Amino acid sequence: MTTASPIKLAIAPIAWTNDDMPELGKENSFEQCISEMALAGFSGTEIGNKYPKEPAILRPYLELRHLEVASAWFSAFLTTRPFEETAEAFIKHRDFLAAMGAKVIVVSEQGHSIQGQDLPVFTKKPIFTDEEWHRLTEGLEALGDLATEKEMDIVYHHHMGTGVQTTSEIDRLMAETNPEKVSLLYDTGHLVFSGEDPLAIYQTHHQRIKHIHFKDIREAIAKEVVTAEDSFLTGVRKGVFTVPGDGMINFKPICKAIDASGYEGWVVVEAEQDPALANPLEYAIKARRYIKDTWAI
């Protein structure tokens, strides 16, 4: 990647150690994870469950490998719990990321989420009431104000098994929130898995997008998840997600749209799968080569 590029390339540790299913990759150490990220040619990372939680401890590990922190996931419960509970946890999370130099905070509403439950991910996904939508949008704007105190932005992660997954739900969230306070995370894998048009979503909301996740979908497994009425985590175990270039998504028009929009920020490869079946270093290298060949980044 050239230093002149406004786009920086990171990879998520979830390919090495899974936060939702810690048994996946339990044998992989934190040091192995970040070393292999650097070896594969990435310059950034998101934060995983094995990472040190103190900036003074974490920073030297990353600096030795020339890695920066792109962001980290935050679970909000704005629709189901008092705002103060989410705000208290958010401030702690925000301050950690700010100390690590991150500029965006990934936020996903987990109120009523089934992504960690043994329920069919499509037929049992939550549908928010109007009151819950109001609590969500009002709460997100308040979190956006808290992020601004550290000169940061929140980026909302649409996600399978949650109340903001589909095109209409993403459109509503964007329409009902202040663009100065709430931005969007764009995730190719979750959009295609859900049955949405990723290119159309990007073109519609590119002005709000401040963080990007690149993951691919294995089409046959995605269809199997629907037919078998699998849960989200069962789909992950089966291998529904993979790295760019290894699945059904055509990333070339998406990359062109990103360039045309003038996007500046991180593109994070994120493909959670069982590391015993998909060697993380092998797949990280595969993703890095594909992006270089497809996008020249």
Rank of each mutant, 00 (worst) to 15 (best):
S5Y: 07
L9T: 10
F30W: 10
Q32E: 13
C33M: 14
M37W: 09
G44L: 02
G48Q: 11
K50F: 05
Y51E: 04
P52N: 05
W73S: 11
S75R: 10
F77S: 10
L78I: 08
T79K: 05
T86A: 07
A87H: 02
L97C: 11
A99M: 01
M100F: 04
G101F: 05
I114A: 15
L119S: 12
P120Y: 10
K124T: 10
K124N: 11
P126S: 13
F128H: 14
T129E: 13
W133A: 10
G139R: 07
G139F: 05
L140W: 10
E141S: 08
G144L: 07
L146P: 00
L146T: 03
V155H: 01
V164L: 10
S168L: 13
D171L: 07
T177G: 04
S183L: 08
L185G: 02
D197Y: 10
D197C: 08
Q203P: 00
K210Q: 12
K215L: 02
R218L: 07
V226E: 14
S231L: 06
V240H: 06
T242G: 02
G245K: 08
N250T: 04
F251S: 01
D259Q: 11
V268R: 02
P280V: 12
E282D: 15
Y283K: 15
R289G: 04
T294P: 00
I297Y: 14
I297L: 15
I297C: 12
